[in-house]
Amino acid sequence: MPPPPTEEEIVDHFREQAVFCGGLGSPFMEQLCAVMANDIEAGGPVAALVAGWPTNPRRDALSLRIAGYLHHSVLTGAAKDLAAAYPARDKTWTMAGIWPLAQCWLSATPSEARVFLKSPPQTNEVRRSVALLPGFLKLAARFPMPMHLLELGASAGLNQNWDRFSYRTASWSLPGTSGVEIQTDWKTQPPEHLEARPQVASRAACDQNPIDVSNPDTALRLKSYVWPDQPERLARIDAAMALARETGVKVDKADAADWLKAKLAARPATGLTVIYHSVFLQYPPADVRRALLDMTEAAGAEATPARPLAWLCFEPGAFFQGPDQTGIDPNDFITYLKVWPGGEEHRLLRSDGHVTRVSAT
């Protein structure tokens, strides 16, 4: 087991996250992560919370856990003074006004904060569906047959409803059957096969720690990880959670490798099975990732025209680019599709983790 991180490594993570948040359009989170880094160096309440953190702070998204705790305290109304200063209530917010209140809240509630920090952030970013959509449309056009969906690392399962969302960009649109609308800055050619209509016959999903959005408390926790100065994302997750409750979305609590093995063994004798996931592969250990890929390849080797298999994902580009990373930004994410029989591969597009813009690979 690697040694625990040093304070310097933890501070570096907070400062790096500040840059990421700024690049993803959140001045609030950029400034919050920066002042939390300063607080660690000054020995403040954040320093007390992260002291002795045992594992990689970047992998654990430690800064986002604390930011989520603060937002959760605001959304529940527990931190009334802080809530009054947050962007939802004060459009002229400043971090100079917010941070002293946040410091006081963290100092007053260390036990509650530590309990909250035990669980990793789960944003279930609904906009990632638009990054997966070109792959689903390609599959629907190629295989006009019932489609059986298997989602890994599904969190609350909001993206199981991707075919019910509406999609709108400056260059193309696709109407849906729900009030969830996905928008992004689309900088490449429109997806092929916009006329295709996927025939979703079954949906299943798993997560080690699924969130049940029918429970108001857990739904509020999910929302707390959405950044407070991004009202469009907050409104979208509200709409997506309402749709999930309406359609009865269910996510199995299970290890991804065990779950996928059982699902592949029991998949229907006819129809297209699609294994899909988004921003998931960096979380399982390397041996679990390898097991997932190996069993997918093995199932693909047995695929037939009447029983095809596809693997569709939106993941960090490093997973799919090989040793030569020339031209690949560390923050690039790639939509990747592999189809059997045949094992044909496609790299469909690239984006950032929140899919704020989409470009060609």
Rank of each mutant, 00 (worst) to 15 (best):
L243D: 10
R245Q: 12
A85N: 01
I66V: 09
A318M: 06
V11L: 13
H13C: 15
V251N: 08
E16Q: 10
P121C: 07
A140K: 03
G322D: 06
A201W: 03
S278Y: 01
D217S: 06
S224M: 06
P330E: 08
G300Q: 11
L220Q: 11
L337V: 07
A141G: 12
D60I: 03
E7K: 08
I182Y: 01
D212G: 10
K80A: 15
P228F: 01
L281G: 00
E7N: 05
R221Q: 15
Q321H: 09
T335E: 10
A113I: 04
V74E: 08
F320I: 05
S26G: 14
A67I: 01
A201L: 11
D217Q: 10
S173E: 15
G25H: 04
S129P: 05
P27H: 14
V35K: 09
Y225E: 10
Q321M: 12
M295F: 09
T109H: 15
P198W: 06
S155N: 07
K187L: 14
A83E: 15
T92Y: 05
R350V: 14
P231T: 08
P210M: 05
M295P: 04
S155F: 00
P231Q: 10
V213A: 07
N215R: 11
A257F: 06
L293C: 05
E232M: 07
L106M: 11
A303E: 02
L24A: 12
D60H: 13
A256P: 02
D81N: 13
T6K: 03
I10L: 02
M147F: 04
R307E: 03
Y167V: 02
V126E: 02
V213C: 07
M241P: 08
W172E: 12
G157Y: 05
H354A: 05
A42H: 10
A88E: 14
L133G: 03
W93F: 05
T55R: 04
R290E: 14
P5R: 01
E181P: 00
T270E: 14
A291H: 07
R203C: 11
A88D: 14
D81A: 15
F14S: 01
T270S: 13
D212W: 02
A318G: 09
E16P: 00
A298Q: 15
A219N: 03
P216G: 06
H148V: 08
P284Y: 03
P316L: 12
R89S: 13
N38G: 14
Y86A: 09
S173C: 10
S107P: 00
Y167A: 00
V115K: 08
G176D: 00
S171N: 15
